[in-house]
């Protein structure tokens, strides 16, 4: 009787020793499906008529400032990269353009904008707080004293991409 009790106990212990225990941890796979960003050039930065030797500035809030509109995923961060020309051209002639003043707003209004420190080719971040962004571009041209007559143009490019935040 005593022996069988010991044997059973021993077998039970042996059985327990043979068991291996698993531990688990859980992580998640996550993704956010978003709408593609759209960028639209809404209005050109138009200096109108300028005079030889007289600088002309168009403020971001002027009616002829350059404008872009963007749509994107609500509350997501967007990296905007501007390509800002340094000259306007008219055939072989050029005219300097500089001192850009770039502002951004969640609504299509020049009131309550945020200034962007923009360097051509370097991304600057903003946020699609309400799913839209409006960009206003002012600038200054510097016609030379002997600036040739003509229509001068250049292209301002805005590229936008999600940062993932």
């Amino acid at each position: 009787m005593t022996s069988s009790r010991h044997l059973v106990a021993a077998l039970a212990l042996f059985g327990a020793a043979g068991a291996v225990q698993g531990q688990s941890a859980t992580i998640a796979a996550t993704a956010t499906v978003v709408t593609p960003i759209t960028v639209t050039g809404s209005a050109p930065l138009a200096f109108g008529n300028v005079f030889q030797g007289v600088n002309k500035t168009i403020a971001f809030s002027d009616a002829t400032s350059g404008r872009f509109s963007l749509t994107g995923y609500l509350n997501s961060q967007v990296a905007m990269t501007f390509t800002l020309p340094t000259t306007l051209t008219s055939g072989a002639n050029t005219m300097p353009i500089n001192t850009y003043d770039v502002r951004v707003n969640g609504t299509n209004s020049t009131t309550g904008t945020t200034a962007l420190t923009v360097t051509s080719g370097t991304p600057v971040n903003s946020n699609f707080v309400a799913g839209t962004l409006f960009v206003f571009v002012g600038g200054r041209v510097q016609p030379a004293a002997a600036q040739a007559q003509g229509t001068y143009t250049a292209t301002i490019v805005l590229a936008a991409a999600y940062t993932g935040l």
């Binding site: 531990q23 688990s24 941890a25 859980t26 998640a28 996550t30 993704a31 956010t32 978003v34």
Partner: peptide, 13 residues
Amino acid sequence: VGGYTAPIIVTIT
């Protein structure tokens, strides 16, 4: 559009 998720369970023996 929106957030998607799934659990990944790792069991270590």
